[in-house]
């Protein structure tokens, strides 16, 4: 351990005690300042001792990976599910958080150069207000009926994804089987095999059986909403219609007074 590392270690010890004391005293501002210093000291200690490289930035290929996974699923899906599908089929993992801000990057890219890309990763639209649905990813080129989500859609999309995955040529591979097992555990009549192994055909049949129960109502709601969505502008059709835009336009709803910082 070089002399310099010893000094660093002593400095790290002091900073740690100081950060903990200021956090305990509830003085968050000082804590934030000291913590930054501490991270810096720790990073230089890592570099000096471990030689760790800089963390990876979200490269362009995250977009392709998301699109590929969404194609497999064929239905709006949450970032965690998209990441799980990618990991099962292609190994490695794109953390859910990097996927979450992918949607924001795509919207920014679209607004700066509309339609520059063939396929955009974009939001699902809620059936009632056509607003961006929280925590869902879709592909811009999908038909509106598939991108709009109603009250039953969360369940129907889950079942659709199960059927699509069960039908995937590589459904027999262990990683995909483990992913299918988590679907099977939550579909009545589907989970029969021992841990980690799933009878894909049985899963697909069970999923289809439940899907038929909801499909009619779900399709009706999505079709009606899709018709309304068709009248939206390009950007809003892809990334959702926001009330704020409406408020700005016509000075709509009175601003909510107690809209303080959410604790």
């Amino acid at each position: 351990m070089t002399l310099e590392a010893d000094a660093l270690e002593a400095r790290i010890g002091e900073l740690r005690a100081a950060v903990r004391r200021s956090m305990a005293a509830g003085d968050r501002a000082t804590a934030r300042r000291l913590r930054a210093e501490l991270r810096e000291a720790e990073r230089s200690w890592d570099a000096a001792v471990l030689g760790g490289g800089p963390p990876a930035r979200p490269g362009p290929q995250v977009r392709e990976q998301a699109l590929r996974a969404l194609d497999v699923l064929g239905a709006p899906a949450a970032p965690r599910l998209v990441a799980a599908v990618h990991a099962a089929l292609h190994g490695g993992d794109i953390t859910g958080s990097r996927l979450a801000n992918l949607r924001r990057d795509e919207e920014r890219a679209f607004r700066s150069a509309p339609h520059a890309r063939a396929h955009y990763v974009c939001a699902a639209l809620t059936a009632d207000l056509l607003a961006p649905a929280r925590g869902l990813l879709t592909v811009g080129s999908w038909p509106l009926e598939r991108r709009v989500v109603g009250r039953l859609s969360a369940r129907t999309d889950f079942l659709t994804a199960a059927i699509r995955l069960a039908g995937h040529p590589r459904h027999g591979e262990p990683a995909v089987q483990r992913l299918l097992w988590r679907f099977a555990a939550n579909i009545p009549g589907a989970s029969g095999g021992a841990l980690g192994t799933v009878d894909a055909a049985a899963l697909a049949a069970a999923a289809q059986a439940e899907l038929d129960v909801h499909l009619g109502a779900d399709r009706r709601e999505r079709a009606a909403a899709a018709a309304r969505a068709a009248r939206l502008g390009d950007a809003e059709r892809l990334f959702g219609h926001r009330l704020r835009a409406l408020r700005a336009a016509s000075g709509g709803l009175p601003h909510d007074p107690s809209d303080g910082e959410r604790r």
Partner: peptide
């Protein structure tokens, strides 16, 4: 199975809304 998310409404998080 119907699911309604009331945490965020059309992007707005105002409590009144």
């Amino acid at each position: 199975v119907a699911y309604d998310d009331l945490e965020v409404v059309a992007g707005g998080e105002g409590r009144e809304l």
